[in-house]
Design a protein around this nucleic acid. Structure first.
Length: 276
DNA sequence: AGGTAAACCTGGACGC
DNA sequence: TGCGTCCAGGTTTACC
């Protein structure tokens, strides 16, 4: 479900409710996520304060007063919401509840269970506290992600540009929706080999990725089916989508029919006329 | 090493 | 109503 804008929306939604609050208890109803929820999630969290919350790619990092870090990924269908302790019944697929000293509770919901909850002990830089984070590429909205970086990293790469920008080791946070959208904005065919995209187009692609992610964050993310923010509200970016999920409909720029193809088992939507 | 396909899950939409 | 098929905001893992 969530790409960078949806994870960022989630972070901004839960952050004010959890920072500075002490964890009073943790309820785990389903340990079987992407990886089994480790015992530390209940054993080590209780009694600690959540000192801050941040995002790295599509991972949420909750820094704890003891120095450790709680690492959460929402996978394809995960979401976090804030509920009032005791007032909000557990819904189907609510797997974890973190009780807070304020009387609120952070509740994790994930029907497909591709998400994960992991615990990193104190000692490391939070952004590198786990193997999963160590090889991640730059943040797309940071200055580290620029034209020069993309130019250098694409040299001699034969993989399709769409798959390339969806690789978290290249740049984090660009999932299937925003990869399609950014390539449309930049006028690049999703099938083009990464190493054969011109420097000028790569420059445009960098700016398109920043633009589309930035706009989507402003609009609270994209709700295709079931994404909801921490208050249980939908995002509004769906109405802005230029190509994603628009197979057979007219291109908003040229009127041509939007096409759908499959690349590495994922749907790609594009305009054959606008994207070369 | 790079590139591709399968794997992990549940549920909704659609055709018969 | 039901059943089979296909599809879905991700990413690791196994395999060529």
């Amino acid at each position: 479900m969530p790409e960078l804008p949806e994870v960022e929306t989630t972070l901004r939604g839960v952050e004010p409710w959890i920072t500075g609050k002490k964890i009073t208890d943790v309820v785990i109803r389903q340990r079987s996520l992407r990886w089994p929820v480790p015992p530390e999630i209940s054993d080590s969290l209780v009694g600690q304060k959540i000192s801050s919350a941040r995002r790295r790619g599509k991972y949420l990092l909750f820094l704890l007063s003891g120095g450790g870090t709680l690492l959460v990924h929402l996978g394809m269908s995960g979401s976090l919401r804030i509920v009032n302790r005791g007032e909000d019944d557990w819904r189907k697929h609510d797997h974890i509840g973190v009780g807070l000293s304020s009387g609120k509770e952070l509740r994790f919901h994930d029907p497909r269970r591709f998400g994960c909850w992991l615990y990193c002990p104190a000692g490391d830089v939070p952004e590198e506290c786990h193997e999963l984070l160590k090889k991640l590429g730059p943040e797309p909205l940071s200055d580290d992600f620029d034209e020069t970086y993309l130019w250098k990293s694409t040299r001699n790469r034969k993989v399709a540009i769409k798959q390339f920008i969806m690789n978290a080791n290249v740049v984090v946070g660009v999932g299937n929706i925003y990869a399609c959208e950014a390539l449309f904005l930049a006028g690049i065919s999703p099938r083009k080999a990464a190493g054969r995209v011109t420097r000028k187009k790569l420059d445009l692609l960098v700016r398109s990725i920043k633009e589309v992610l930035g706009e989507a964050i402003q609009m609270g993310g994209t709700t295709l089916r079931d994404f909801l923010n921490a208050e249980g509200e939908a995002g509004y970016f769906k109405q802005e989508l230029r190509v994603y999920d628009r197979e057979g409909q007219p291109c908003r720029e040229c009127g041509s029919e939007i096409k759908r193809i499959v690349q590495s088992n994922r749907s790609t939507f594009y305009c054959p006329k606008c994207q070369k």
